[in-house]
Amino acid sequence: MTKQKSGKLVRREKITALVFVSPLIIGFIVFTLVCMIISFGWSFTNFNPISGRMKFDGWGQYVDLFTHPTYKKAFLDSILNTLFLLLSIPVSIIISVLIAALMNSKKFKGKTVFRVIIYLPAVTSVVAVNYIWRYMFEENYGLINAFFHAHIPWLTDETLVKVAMIIKNVWSGIGTQVILFMAGMQNISDEYYEAAELDGAGPVYKFLHITLPLVTPVLFYTIITGLIGGFQMFADVELFAGGHYGARTIVFFIRNYGIGQNLYGLASAASFLLAAIIMIITALQFKFNKWVEYTD
């Protein structure tokens, strides 16, 4: 094979490779890049597609989010609500780690059955999960109030609706986390535990000083994915809380003011602030997680 010929082959290979990735590139340009640029542009205007109004407004929409008498409260409350709802992350992590540790014990039989059961909510229709829990939290004929002989306004009180949502989210989210933590714990070599046992360490000591430090990669992964998902919460605001003000998240605000009220400038500005938060979190993940270092 002459040098020229092999050079030609390499060039052909490179072109073929580009053809193979072209659907991905086209998809990225059309559905992500272009839309992002448009939305970024809108965030500096007072665009309203119904009235056809579109004037350059500089940082005006961003300023409005924090100062305008009509939107300020709704926007800031949507941020506070979202942050409040993120509490489900630490709660479910604590529960999942403990369950995983229990199940990871060698003597514990029936792991598979329990794993299957715990993961069930993750493979249940979203509407179903939200409706069952909404029904159970109902004030007058819900099972939870009936059980405690109480009349707690779970779905109508601004704080309690978030608490109820957190409980529901923990229930539906721990399955994935338990499985991840169990996988992480199974990777820990028995030698560590054996050495600790020789020194007379009890189960609590082993958990705190061996298991926990060695599952930090999983911990990190669950926190990050929890944050990314948590900041984008939307479906349960409608399905579980019925759009209750106390449960409205940032994404709900964007949808509501964007498609609902046609204030595209304002909604785009909010969406860019959200995107910035998520990008920072994801960048952290890329930086710290071994998962991404596939090239090495």
């Binding site: 939305s39 909604a267 969406s271």
Partner: peptide, 27 residues
């Protein structure tokens, strides 16, 4: 396969994972 700028292309594509749907759905 050998591909020109494959690392950069992959990185750019992966950056789309960072963009929330909420920032794209209005356009």
């Amino acid at each position: 396969m050998r591909m020109p700028c494959s690392k950069i292309i992959l990185l750019v594509l992966m950056s789309s994972m960072m963009v929330p749907f909420a920032a794209l759905f209005l356009p």
